[in-house]
């Protein structure tokens, strides 16, 4: 049971990130966005801003963006994180 719901969650997540990796970018820097599953938001690492996802709709109006505390972004190193993200997306793409 747990496994099934986990798989479902993973599917839903990869659905969003697949779309994202295809076309969505940060509305301000036009740089890639990464999905933060913990907070259910989209993060623009280039400028350290997070955008919410509400009811499955990414909210990418510049005014919706929240500036991340520098502590949050440095929690895990930005470079390896974005690289890891890319690998994950490729795996999900098939």
């Amino acid at each position: 049971m747990v496994r099934v719901s986990k798989a479902l969650l993973k599917d839903a997540g990869s659905g969003i990130s697949k779309t994202l990796s295809e076309i969505l970018v940060c509305p301000l820097s036009k740089q890639p966005l990464r999905v933060c599953e913990k907070t259910g938001s989209l993060i623009s690492d280039a400028i350290g801003v997070s955008f919410p996802i509400k009811d499955g709709i990414p909210c990418l109006v510049p005014k919706d963006g929240k500036i991340l505390e520098t502590n949050d972004t440095s929690e895990d190193d930005g470079v390896t994180d974005s690289a890891g993200m890319k690998r994950e997306e490729k795996g999900g793409n098939r």
Binding site: I23, V25, P27, K30, P58, L60
Partner: peptide
């Protein structure tokens, strides 16, 4: 989104809804 459901397009993978500003689009060049 509600109308998409009513039309049977709720599950259609072709449609993506984004809240965004026409003056600062969140789509690639």
């Amino acid at each position: 989104k509600k109308r998409a459901l009513e039309r049977g397009l709720g599950e259609d993978k072709s449609l993506t809804w984004v809240e965004g500003d026409a003056e600062a689009l969140s789509f690639e060049d």
